[in-house]
Design a protein around this nucleic acid. Sequence first.
DNA 1: GGTTTCCCCAAGTTTTTCTAAACGAGCTTG
DNA 2: CAAGCTCGTTTAGAAAAACTTGGGGAAACC
Lengths: 289, 289
Amino acid sequence: MKRSLPLNALRVFQVAAQHLSFTKASEELSLTAAAVSQQVKLLEQHLGMALFVRSNNKLSLTPAGERYFPRVREAFRALQHATAQLLDQKFSLRVAVPATFGTKWLVPRLFRFFGKHPDIDVAVLTEAQLEAGAWDIAIEERAGEEGPHVLVATDYVPVCGPVLASQLTQPSDLNAVTLLYERSGRRSAIAPDWNAWMAHAGAVLADTTRELGLGDGTMMLQAAIEGQGVALAQRLLIAYDVAAGRLVEPFAASTPWRHAYHLTVAQGVADRSEVSIFCEWLRAEVLAS
Amino acid sequence: MKRSLPLNALRVFQVAAQHLSFTKASEELSLTAAAVSQQVKLLEQHLGMALFVRSNNKLSLTPAGERYFPRVREAFRALQHATAQLLDQKFSLRVAVPATFGTKWLVPRLFRFFGKHPDIDVAVLTEAQLEAGAWDIAIEERAGEEGPHVLVATDYVPVCGPVLASQLTQPSDLNAVTLLYERSGRRSAIAPDWNAWMAHAGAVLADTTRELGLGDGTMMLQAAIEGQGVALAQRLLIAYDVAAGRLVEPFAASTPWRHAYHLTVAQGVADRSEVSIFCEWLRAEVLAS
DNA sequence: GGTTTCCCCAAGTTTTTCTAAACGAGCTTG
DNA sequence: CAAGCTCGTTTAGAAAAACTTGGGGAAACC
């Protein structure tokens, strides 16, 4: 490499390649289109090859640019991710939770914690970033409700929007609607299925019943709220939506199997006061509900 | 992220963290130490946290910096690697070879190819970068000498420097010296071992004989040239060193097993004239030797 | 105790980067 | 088919970084 890569030009290239438009890239970067054009030209000169084909009024990548772009994007994403994680360390307490649990249970209660402890900066991270050193407290979901660190456990009930609920009088009616369930891909917990619930409710799931698997519990609940079907959801996580009338439980029957959320404290942080304060607050919240 | 990362400052940080010295970093970057100091300070301000501990006269990373550094380094390496590979595309022909084969067989003959075809830019890549699209022709080593695309095959013979060779009169003398062999970790070929050669030569390898495994054939041959021991080397690759008197074959006995170099042409490039010209030249070179 | 080795700071200069404005090529539109 | 629009390029000058110089201090080395 004759001279070190022009990094800023590289970032401009990356954004421009994403949009396949210098104008759009200039907006994202808060620059003028001229600046983008210049930076890209600089990079192309540095590499000694064209990255874009400027066929008048339409922009596309050359084969070289096509090969280069995804790798450059990946590198920048890695930088971005590393930086974001570094910045998390500025919080005095970092709590990693499953996305749905965070959205539907933790976040709605968190304002009470802030009220009591305004001096503690809490960061709520999604489970996806469960790398060592990235969190102080982690909450994880597992099947069953045994274990020394169980925070709270829940069963599953069918829920749906109020309109749909009015059409359901008995479990077998479910065969006429779309059944939503969570396709928890990587999670260790065994996802509950409709088949089991129906059997438990004394009905039979027809082969023809339409099912829709959502990749994420929040998405599933959102679909249920919008009336797209009936979801098999954790009772623990629907309290607020039920209270607001957005969701209704058409049948009381819950499931015999339960899932539990387990509380883990990262090694070496147990003696920090924020950590124990938060853990105690969590347990108090569980008891209060 | 309030404002996009200062990429150049990030690179400076990366270099400084590598050396744990602003002065050394400034040399590598062809800057003054003051410039390095300023860039690092800029980055630290941007992130809102310290990355280095400046204890007078000794520099070290903070825990945050310690976590950040390897990830930043990785991202820059990825960029560097992607760019290097992109630049290879400027060559009209990219040939990937095992490192030792390239050093000892291909490169010494390559000047004849350039003489005949000065218009073809050849890039010789090491096997390590065997990713799709990165090469036009690949040469790979495998055990045995069967296969439709065998370029050339070879057996193995002991070689060493001339001084050491004068002390060896029969195979059993090898038990008194260091035996060098190639620890070809990832290669699919089964590395030949001294045990087998000794048995074939009618001698016995003593348990006490000192062996030294080198990770790379070139390193092994270099050790042999320097008189550090006797190497079990591919006869194909030692011709030039033997001719120059740097290496000597103390025993004529070669091995019953052979390895072959196979020639692979990447998909979709077989019809390019440079490719067929080079392949024909390779075969002609094999016949000529 | 002097010397060396680091790093930091402030001021000034160089280099890079960006903007503004004008231009040109193709596409759309009336 | 010509006017208007979009989009990228170019140039020159302005703004903003980045870099150097020179000075200083604190530990470490001899």
